[in-house]
Amino acid sequence: MSNRRIKIIFRRVRDANLNYRLIENGDRIAVALSGGKDSFAMLYFLDLLKQHTPLLFDIVPVYVDLGWDNDIETLVEFCQSLDLELITEKTNIGRVVFQTRQEKNPCALCSNLRRGALNRVAKRHNCNKLALGHHLDDVVHTLFMSILYESRFNVFKPSTYLSRMDITMIRPLIYVEERDIRLFIESMGLNPVKNRCPADGLTKRQEVAELFDRMEEMHPGARQRIVSSLENLGPDCFWQPQPRPR
């Protein structure tokens, strides 16, 4: 990937941060790392944001081990290359989801349990924010999954305060397209952690993603315009960007 492409992704991360005030001075941010391409990119560009903006904040990389014995050596080395130490939290979430509960929709329960574990680790390490690696494609896919399978209009927010945990979830990659993340990972020669989860790649989300790949071929820029539409819904929409400080 050229420096120009990295600058484009960085600008989108910076713009999302400016529009939604995701990161502020004094924040201590737990960065949720799954070992996938999205979390690699999120950590890299948050580190760039720290280096190249006046913002003063701390980064705490966190990996929740779901019990699949994934090889995370690449992830450990990547954190070390950024002078960061990876915190690993071992859990039995995989066994609970697939053996104890035998869930028909394992991804939903797994996501909730993993999020809970991330929140606990973040609080244990005195973090006030938790960064998740959802990108622009995830925004669109989540919206249309809620419409197609739940008959409701639902999409996650760029920033969400969890009063029960007293922690704020942020999504720094909401303006970044998945294809740009993929190109970034390839250009850096990074090898995402191979996920041994039995449900990996066999989800409704993957079906919706493939549907939008076809739509993007027919209507280039469709995902970007859908996200822009969310922001144009009006002042009562929770996606409404905030006024930037003068």
Rank of each mutant, 00 (worst) to 15 (best):
81 S>W: 12
71 D>L: 08
48 L>T: 00
54 P>H: 09
56 L>Q: 14
77 E>S: 13
49 L>A: 12
24 E>G: 06
52 H>Y: 15
77 E>C: 08
28 R>G: 01
37 K>T: 06
49 L>G: 11
25 N>R: 13
72 I>S: 00
26 G>D: 15
31 V>A: 02
68 W>P: 00
80 Q>I: 12
60 V>N: 00
94 G>K: 09
71 D>G: 07
81 S>M: 10
70 N>G: 00
32 A>M: 09
37 K>I: 08
83 D>I: 10
51 Q>P: 04
78 F>L: 01
44 Y>M: 09
36 G>S: 02
38 D>K: 03
45 F>G: 07
73 E>L: 08
24 E>I: 13
29 I>R: 03
40 F>L: 09
93 I>R: 06
38 D>M: 05
30 A>Y: 01
65 D>M: 01
78 F>E: 01
26 G>N: 15
88 T>D: 01
93 I>G: 04
26 G>Q: 14
81 S>H: 12
56 L>I: 11
58 D>S: 12
60 V>C: 01
92 N>Q: 09
38 D>Q: 04
44 Y>S: 11
39 S>P: 10
86 L>V: 03
35 G>P: 05
93 I>Y: 05
66 L>P: 00
58 D>G: 04
28 R>A: 05
43 L>A: 03
31 V>K: 01
38 D>I: 06
90 K>G: 02
83 D>Y: 13
37 K>N: 07
78 F>M: 01
29 I>W: 08
51 Q>S: 15
74 T>D: 14
46 L>V: 07
85 E>D: 10
91 T>S: 09
27 D>P: 05
44 Y>A: 12
26 G>R: 13
39 S>Q: 05
77 E>H: 10
27 D>R: 07
94 G>E: 01
